[in-house]
């Protein structure tokens, strides 16, 4: 059973098709990257997968069950989300913020699990620090811990690497890959193509709301797809540091 199934799904936003008959599936242990130009439908796809948008056609299923028919606790137990908007309203200590991922857990046990989750991401030392007093990279890890602590089998992160320095970007992807290695299904939207090529098992390329490629990075980032989806001349090349996607305006 796939953790997430998107079945010929269409979404209409303000009279235009933001998603046009998109189909894909993500299984346990896999990291699927969603890439595409701005306005391509990445965020809309992630929100539709979670039942946060009205669907025009098609269906999104979590663990085989239509997301629209899940109760709120069921949906929360099947998927966790890290939205693109990482604005935190109040300066909570990190562990209290992480414990928000466990709203039905008792206080003491919630605290233990939150600190364990922070420890798993190497930031246990930040547990008592206010999240608004942290650097962007530190806060990104705390927010990841909030998503991971839920224990949901499907983790969906919308541009978790945006605004971070290169090292922190790789780190975020590594931490998500570690969750996949433990059996989670991970869906992550990204702008950095090299990061996507290195960190994801498969890539889904969206252009104008349509899925134009779905497959391993070598296929999904072919020169033809780079041209048609991004309007860029470019290719995926191997270097001694790993694969790199070189691009130039066409």
């Amino acid at each position: 059973m796939d953790a997430l199934t998107i079945d010929t799904l269409s979404v209409r936003l303000g009279g235009r098709l933001a998603l046009d008959r998109v189909s894909l599936a993500v299984g346990a242990g896999e990291v699927l990257g969603i890439i595409g130009a701005n306005g391509g439908g990445k965020t809309t796809l992630l929100r539709a997968a979670l039942g946060l948008t009205v669907l025009a056609a098609g269906e999104a299923r979590l663990a085989g069950r239509p997301v629209s028919r899940l109760s709120l606790p069921e949906r929360a137990s099947l998927a966790a989300y890290l939205p693109q908007d990482r604005d935190v309203a109040w300066n909570l200590p990190a562990w209290r913020l992480v414990a928000l991922g466990l709203p039905r857990m008792g206080a003491a046990r919630g605290r233990d699990m939150a600190i364990a989750a922070l420890d798993g991401l190497g930031v246990a030392s930040l547990a008592e620090r206010g999240v608004l007093d942290m650097s962007g990279g530190e806060r990104a890890r705390v927010l990841l811990a909030r998503m991971i602590v839920t224990g949901a089998p499907l983790l969906i992160a919308d541009e978790p690497a945006a605004g971070l320095d290169p090292d922190a970007q790789f780190l975020v992807l590594e931490l998500l890959r570690a969750q996949a290695a433990r059996g989670a299904a991970v869906v992550v939207s990204l702008h950095d193509l090299t990061l996507a090529a290195r960190g994801c098992d498969r890539l889904a390329v969206l252009a104008g709301g349509r899925l134009v490629a779905l497959g391993p990075p070598v296929q999904a980032l072919s020169p033809e797809i780079l041209k048609s989806a991004f309007g860029l001349n470019g290719e995926l090349i191997s270097t001694r540091h790993g694969v790199v996607v070189t691009t130039a305006r066409g």
Partner: peptide, 20 residues
Amino acid sequence: APGLSQLTLGEETAALSGLP
């Protein structure tokens, strides 16, 4: 009160917390 705490991380995270 529990809903107010969830709103710390914004509407979408709160909506997916499992709380009504």
